[in-house]
């Protein structure tokens, strides 16, 4: 019975996920097609271009821009089902390929930032929950400042201090671990601050629970109590915030990659927006939705398995 209901739940979630993806594709398709500006011109007529009309006609025909809008939409959905996100106007290669090319550095950055954020948050929360008041005040003060600092200000500050002034870390590029440090912290610190706040509150509540008092009375040491008992209970809260974390990582990537001149999907998005590369922007938006849906699904399944009580809720 339990497996059945679990499967049903997963099936339902999958269906909802597909629905979300279809909606995201449709909405972004509509939105971007209403934008002003001639995409064919933008494709060939960058700065200092001098194209002829025959060239422009060829471009419009190649990309189906001369077709009625519903034909373009249906074609788009059809291709989407086959995993084809279309052809980039600007780069003249499949969007899926462009994303795949740029994905590595962004994943590297996002994973590194997520790890740093979670480790920092857990560490700080464990160390500061239910301590002397000034410790809590200090750490929540720092967290507050970090959550209030816009990503681009934080990144710039790190750049000035560690790169421009002291030359401790490289300014730009995708090469090597050293060039990953500043972007990672730029992206991770605000997320860590939010997670730490939530986690500490949660930890403090757990630490007041009767079972903790019982455990303590059996003579368990403080560190062990915190790590073995309290942390496990409070981590669920972090897991529920995975949606927020993904959103921050993907959104923050646009700014972080721009600031640090890093290759990646964020740069691709910004380029697509400024050049009205319709398939590119659509592709990235749909891709972001896929990531969101998949990660949420995994998280959902994950803690349904861990904590079966949630199934019946």
């Amino acid at each position: 019975m339990r497996t059945g209901s679990l499967l049903r739940r997963i099936g339902f979630r999958l269906l909802a996920g597909v629905g979300v993806l279809w909606g995201a594709a449709t909405l972004s398709f509509i939105a971007l097609h209403v934008t002003a500006g001639d995409a064919a011109l933008a494709t060939v007529a960058g700065q200092g271009a001098n194209p002829t009309e025959a060239v422009l006609r060829a471009v419009r025909h190649d990309y189906g821009l001369d077709q009625p809008i519903y034909v373009q939409y249906l074609r788009y959905l059809g291709r989407l089902v086959r995993g084809d996100l279309g052809q980039s106007y600007q780069q003249r290669i499949p969007v899926a390929k462009a994303i795949a090319e740029q994905l590595g550095p962004t994943v590297q950055l996002a994973v590194a930032a997520a790890l740093v954020a979670v480790l920092l948050a857990v560490g700080v929360a464990l160390l500061t929950a239910r301590r002397r008041p000034w410790i809590g005040s200090l750490s929540s003060g720092v967290e507050l400042v970090l959550t209030s600092t816009p990503t681009f200000v934080l990144g710039l500050l790190l750049l000035i201090v560690f790169s421009f002034k002291t030359r401790l870390l490289p300014v730009s590029g995708n090469q090597g671990l050293a060039s990953l440090i500043l972007p990672t912290f730029t992206l991770a610190l605000p997320i860590a601050a939010v997670l730490a706040q939530v986690l500490r509150t949660e930890l403090e509540e757990v630490l007041e629970q009767p079972f903790i008092v019982t455990v303590r009375s059996r003579g368990m040491r403080d560190v062990a109590v915190r790590v073995r008992h309290a942390l496990r209970h409070s981590l669920v809260q972090v897991v529920t915030m995975s949606g927020y974390v993904i959103g921050s990582l993907l959104g923050g990537a646009v700014i972080t990659e721009t600031l640090f001149v890093r290759q990646g999907v964020g740069q691709l998005m910004l380029n697509g927006v400024t050049n009205k590369d319709i398939p590119m922007v659509l592709g990235i938006v749909v891709f972001a939705s896929v990531v969101y849906v998949v990660v949420n699904l995994l998280v959902d399944i994950g803690y349904t398995v861990i904590d079966p009580r949630l199934v019946t809720r």
């Binding site: 002003a36 500006g37 001639d38 011109l41 933008a42 007529a45 400024t274 050049n275 009205k276």
Partner: peptide
């Protein structure tokens, strides 16, 4: 203006 619109305006 974004490049695409700029080009349209220009031409």
């Amino acid at each position: 203006l974004p490049l695409a619109q700029m080009t349209t305006v220009r031409y």
